[in-house]
Nucleic acid binder design. Structure first.
Lengths: 364, 364
DNA sequence: GTGAAAGCGCTAACAA
DNA sequence: TTGTTAGCGCTTTCAC
């Protein structure tokens, strides 16, 4: 008795084997698999029986080669564990699955070279779309390379989607999904300002990263609108990590500038800062107010619960695949090969902000 | 001028195009791509130039069809956003990438039918391995189906890896990576017992799920070892969600049995329970002790910080791909087609446990 | 060192 | 309704 799932001589079963066993042609086998063409009930029955008996599993590569889409979308993020990316990935995965597609995921740990390499890999697999998620640092060479890949992808009928990162320019064949990053930063800073804070520390976020720049820009616009000066000592970029938030906050509490509120670059950094504050015996929000960005789950676990900016992360992921696949079906020459969808953000007020009470200690 | 990335007539460039432009045969083009065979420097140069000029990108499907591995591993989890799965996924992704492989991710939302469907899909793509993560409910039909898929996969040279779920039996061609789930539950319960707790509420975890069963088994063993009775009213399974933890804890506080400690089925459930306790004005650990399981980040954010059981999640992911790919390279008939790797768990003592003080309110 | 040609497994005309 | 057959793009003997 042959092992199930293989033919007598040990090979994997193929359409030819199935056809032979069922006494039909390979075309018929193909037709019963794809149900895209009429096949007599009796014939279909025999074919299905043969497939079962042989443990036949269609070869997706052969099928893709023969011309049908591989039905894959690729997503490139910096870390699956980071909730910011995880929620976007969930949106992508759900939308892809809803469209009968599989999702290829790559993590780069923030390395631009790996981004490029992964785009290439997904292109080789003929992914229907590749979605690049998260901010980027402005780099001439990198930008050029990315644009080249975008063109290659486009020439092959796939789309490069920029999700939460700036466009490559009007002539690059990419499509984008953004969120109102600057606006969210403006809103939350203004919230702090309205409570009476005048010295706000901006903490964390890789310097040079587009995400950081936009958040700081919104922050500054709010300051300017109220006629407040910008103090360089009050912006302390760094990593998007809990560890950074904790360490830097600790240092700053010891010998940094005075401030009455902290605007952490994201909720994770805020969690680290909160711990530092706690260890230093400072109460939030009585002694210092604290806000974050992203509105990921940790914001609700912190005590006091964190006031932050909500980003429709999962929705961004969904839209990224929609936008990439829209009109990609046929050759509509007018289909916009470029364009950006922008989603809104909004302030989520919880318990970590109060009016300032005492000015924090003077410097060093 | 032809669009970059395509030939004059608009098709994607193929080896044939490259060969023609470089004035060599397709075999030579293949050889320069794969660097697995000597090619004259000058020839190589011409070919590479042609590839660049044409924007040539190899077709992974054609390559796979021609016999080289697709270098893909598939992972099936229930939700990318859940840190338990996210950390395992990170391990899988990292190990896969380290081995030059790409990672296909599927989320099932806990639906066994989708699990089966996804396994099929990954098989169609000829994944080198498919990793099934997380507990399962014992179901005759499902088990049979799964075993059938495992055989098909095995017949095709791929491996089904059971990660954190019970084996299908000695004769099923699967490989496994587990963690000492029962032992961790025993240890943490015993920790509570040692502090003097005698009425411990077990909260959450889908009933029937292998993960739940094992944790409860460890919990009971600890109780028995100390000669304590098991009270059915004290085990309240449910979902693995924050919402469940919160809702059920609230109800139980109102009209449940007496208890002095809560063993939440995982850290997420613990977070929900903590909130319910907080809302009811009960302090942890003074009024009631609380412990979780998994040791995911939220455990460190809760106040008091949560005592829990650490699971080497990322390591499990890594091992899952190692174990699946080990010896899968050639036809070593002795290579174990089955076998399970078991990793340890350990108690992480933080601040959420203290000796019992008052017995919680009586029922009804 | 390089080329010719035979597949790999499937789909889609085109015939019958 | 079903069969025949020509590819899809690449790798890989086997010759030269």
């Amino acid at each position: 008795m042959p092992r199930q799932g293989s033919t007598a001589n040990g090979r994997r079963a193929t359409v030819v084997d199935v056809a032979r066993l069922a006494g039909v042609s390979t075309a018929t086998v193909s037709r019963v698999m794809n149900r895209n063409y009429p096949v007599a009930a009796a014939t279909r029955e025999r074919v299905e029986e043969a497939m079962r008996e042989l443990g036949y599993v269609v070869n997706a590569h052969a099928r893709a080669l023969a011309g049908v889409s591989g039905r894959t979308v690729g997503i490139i993020i910096s870390d699956v564990v980071d909730p910011f990316y995880a929620y976007i990935a969930r949106g992508v995965e759900r939308e892809a699955t809803a469209g009968g597609r599989l999702c290829l995921v790559c993590s780069t740990q923030g390395d631009p070279q790996r981004e490029l390499a992964f785009i290439e890999l997904m292109h080789e697999r003929r992914a229907d779309a590749v979605i690049l998620v998260g901010g980027s640092v402005a780099d001439r060479g990198y930008r050029t390379e990315l644009e080249r890949r975008a063109r290659e992808l486009d020439a092959g009928g796939s789309k490069l989607v920029l999700c939460g990162r700036p466009s490559l320019g009007k002539d690059a064949p990419t499509v984008g999904v953004e969120y109102d990053n600057e606006g969210g930063a403006f809103a939350i800073t203004d919230h702090l300002l309205a409570e009476g804070h005048e010295r706000i520390l901006y903490l964390g976020g890789p310097p040079g990263l587009s995400t950081t720049k936009e958040r700081i820009a919104g922050h500054r616009r709010a300051l300017e609108q109220r006629g407040l000066p910008r103090d360089p000592a009050l912006v302390q970029p760094g990593a998007f990590s809990r560890q950074f938030g904790h360490r830097r906050m600790t240092e700053l509490l010891r010998d940094g500038p005075e401030f009455t509120a902290v605007f952490a670059a994201n909720d994770i950094v805020a969690a680290g800062a909160a711990q530092a504050l706690e260890e230093a015996g400072m109460r939030v929000p009585q002694d210092v107010s604290l806000v974050g960005y992203d509105d990921v789950p940790v914001a609700q676990e912190l005590r006091p619960r964190l006031t932050t900016v909500h980003i429709p992360l999962e929705e961004m992921g969904r839209q990224a695949v929609r936008v990439a696949l829209a009109g990609g079906d046929e050759d509509d020459w007018r289909a916009p090969t470029t364009g950006t969808l922008r989603l809104g953000t909004h302030l989520v007020v919880r318990d970590s902000v109060a009016a300032p009470r005492v000015v924090r200690r003077r410097r060093g």
